[in-house]
């Protein structure tokens, strides 16, 4: 639309005829460059989220799982230190086994959570992405098949 006079009414019918004349001069096909990505955009974007094994809570777990419950026996020579050592020895005797089991349990828990996190990351970043790509490719094929069928149908109707 290179020129539009300012003080006269523009006739839309003339514009449509003008466009049709331009199209009649070009044998180009209707545009076909489309992709069904709008359906998948959001899903694919979700695929790109941060891996769960980088979550701060898992870092915290790795950092603090190995806590000794009682620590080494208190040092010193005075009566206060002697009392502390006595209490330590008493606690070690009474609860030491439980504390060691608790530590082993925490270690196993951290290892399990770690393994699960890595497995989840593998699944989300690979398996689901592959699945989506497959579905998307199927949709492309389906769309091409439908369009080709429509065109064949149109051609056969025109030929009659």
């Amino acid at each position: 639309m290179e020129y539009l006079p300012g003080d006269t009414r523009l006739d839309a019918e003339l514009v449509v005829e003008h466009l049709r004349a331009i199209l009649a001069g070009h044998a180009a096909e209707a545009p076909r460059q489309w992709s069904p990505q709008a359906t998948f955009d959001e899903l694919m974007r979700k695929m790109n989220r941060e891996p769960i094994h980088l979550h701060p809570a898992i870092h915290h777990l790795h950092h603090y799982w190995n806590m000794e419950a009682l620590g080494p026996p208190p040092a010193g020579r005075g009566p206060k230190a002697r009392v502390k050592r006595f209490v330590h020895r008493y606690l070690e005797h009474a609860l030491g086994t439980y504390f060691r089991q608790e530590l082993e349990y925490r270690a196993a828990l951290a290892q399990s959570i770690d393994a699960l996190a890595y497995r989840i990351d593998e699944v989300t970043s690979a398996d689901e992405r592959n699945l989506l790509e497959l579905v998307r490719a199927d949709l492309f094929d389906l769309a091409r098949h439908v369009e080709a069928s429509c065109e064949r149908l149109g051609a056969s109707l025109e030929s009659r």
Binding site: M1, E13, L19, P31
Partner: peptide
């Protein structure tokens, strides 16, 4: 749209695309 000359119309996909591109022209 025709009575008003307030828009364009299309018969098929090609015309839809051509008319849409024409409407992106601000003076028109």
């Amino acid at each position: 749209a025709r009575a008003a000359s307030g828009g364009l119309w299309f018969a098929d996909l090609r015309e839809l695309v051509a008319a849409t591109k024409a409407l992106l022209d601000y003076p028109l």
